[in-house]
Amino acid sequence: MMTRKSRRYLKNALIYICLFLVAILTLFPLIWGISASLRDDSELFGYIMPFSVHTLIPVEFTFQAYIDLFTKYGFFTPVKNTVLVTGISIIFGCIVNSVAAFAFAVFDFKFKKPLFALVLLSFMIPFEAIALPLYKVVDNMHMVDTYRGMILPSIASGLVLFLFVQFFRDIPPDLLDAARVDGAGIGRIYMSILLPLSKPIFITAALMIFMDQWNSYLWPLLIARSKGIRTVQIALTAFSTEHKTAWSALYAGSMFSALIPLVLFLPLQKYFVQGITSSGVKG
């Protein structure tokens, strides 16, 4: 008979083995991509087959691919476009959705319930489902190939609005009432009471909008027609046809665009996970 202690060791060892296996599967494409971005094209293909240490670890490390990416392959423009589109979306997304959520959370008004139901309905419909018809709408507004066309459709988000409402509802009404009695206007209440209390939900919202915009593909594919306006994701998918043999640079671009959300995600993980899961568990 196994002792209790040795059984526990065995169980823990099993869990660790499983965790490691899943971790390797998860990390492998990233490790591979990073390693490939840090080496020469010739070296990259020279060591793939047969499999050896140098399949994964460069013989000679070089940042040349990253330098080429920005100097030779004009990667600066798509990065600038993506930062612009993402940044403006975050600012306006936070303002528009939080102000509307403020109204839903602290006031009673006619048609409140059906209007809120409309919000919920709008986030049950995945964006991809309306992207193709949306193109025509935006085309009729003459916003194809403009920043406005890329940004405006994504500002009002049922999901972000819903998360704001959830959060604002938990703020003690006494706090708002007291401010009211002291003569503070609605604008003051929003700015000086609600905002400081709501930092976590603003971080969550900003992070969700960031991930959405930074990583979006279908919408910029439809709307950003010219080279000068396209985003990182589009530039990368076009990369292999435009620069046929620049594999290391393609990897460098992919890793660059993957690592930026990752770097933001790591310290703010808590906010992101809470935001996402509360939408599912409560909704």
């Binding site: 959705n97 102000v99 109204a103 006031f107 209007l115 919000v119 709008s122 309306i130 405006l152």
Partner: peptide, 30 residues
């Protein structure tokens, strides 16, 4: 819930207007 004076009844609608306009044009209308 905060109470609104009669003159301010319209306020919540003003606050939700931008979001609803955008939701309507870019989500429901398509």
């Amino acid at each position: 819930m905060l109470h609104l004076s009669k003159k301010m009844r319209f306020l919540p609608y003003v606050l939700i207007l931008p979001a609803f306009l955008l939701i309507f044009i870019f989500k429901l209308y398509p």
